[in-house]
Design a binder for these strands. Structure first.
Lengths: 150, 150
DNA sequence: CATGAAATCGGAAACTC
DNA sequence: GAGTTTCCGATTTCATG
């Protein structure tokens, strides 16, 4: 995982349709070498998959909110139940004022209620705190550049 | 934006390296027609870009946290200042107990402090509340299926 | 939406340093 | 071990019906 790998990752994050010839130019190598590097990054699991970024509003999920879920028991086994809800885009176990934090996407603000109802159907959920997103500044890929400690 | 488009989007979210021949099979069309559909989805902005998903831990950003930012003034113009911080992966203006919500990724828990310090350097920031992620159940693509209202 | 042809790309060798 | 060159089958892309 050297600087060349990081450059390749950054280039692929920007545009994963780039040809290996183009990627080679970016890092000053041949297409074949760039290809080798990227293949190894995939094999190692550094690059998990190639995907497309979709405009949420265009598929009827223009409203975003975060829900802090409080509970009366351990909630570390609720991954499947949360994954079963299509509105839930992310789900995390957290330290702090609540047990879980989920990111939801729904068509309208009214649909937030319906989603909360579903969340309350999960055994152990004893309360929620909802944070409605008014505007999203940005949502971007993980920065592959060398961080302070790394 | 019909059911065929949604199927194509779902297939591309799963694996954007799939050939148009494969995509055509998924929706029961020829490769050329599938290609047409996908091109139009890109032109319309429904598909924003093709990218790669990277393992955060593999690039030294294995620790995730959410920071609620309180302020003593309107913060709707702070997008650039937040985008300048590589630790900040998402930034939203919110309704609720705070003004902004940012998602950060750092190498270790100790680096959270350094990031908070940078956030406090932004004019108007008067307080923060940090939610540390202990475990991420999942982070997935926006569901393109027909939602309750859509 | 399907077909067909030309340009381009992906993938994996053999070869060099 | 890492990078380069070279190769062929597969794929993208675009015209046409």
């Amino acid at each position: 995982m050297d600087d060349t790998d990081r450059k390749l990752i950054a280039a692929l994050q920007r545009d994963a349709t780039a040809s290996y010839a183009t990627l080679g130019e970016v890092v000053g190598m041949s297409a074949g070498s760039a290809h080798d590097r990227v293949r190894k990054l995939r094999d190692r699991g550094v690059i998990r998959r190639t995907t497309v970024e979709v405009d949420p509003a265009a598929v009827g999920r223009g409203v975003c909110a975060y829900v802090l879920i409080e509970s009366s028991r351990w909630m570390g086994d609720k991954a499947d139940e949360l994954a079963a809800l299509p509105e839930v885009q992310e789900a995390h176990v957290i330290a702090g004022p609540a047990s879980l934090l989920v990111k939801i996407r729904v068509p309208t603000t009214e649909d937030i209620q319906a989603c909360l109802r579903k969340l309350y159907d999960i055994p152990g959920v004893s309360g929620t705190q909802t944070v409605v997103v008014l505007e999203t500044f940005f949502e971007r890929s993980v920065d592959p550049g060398t961080p302070s400690t790394g």
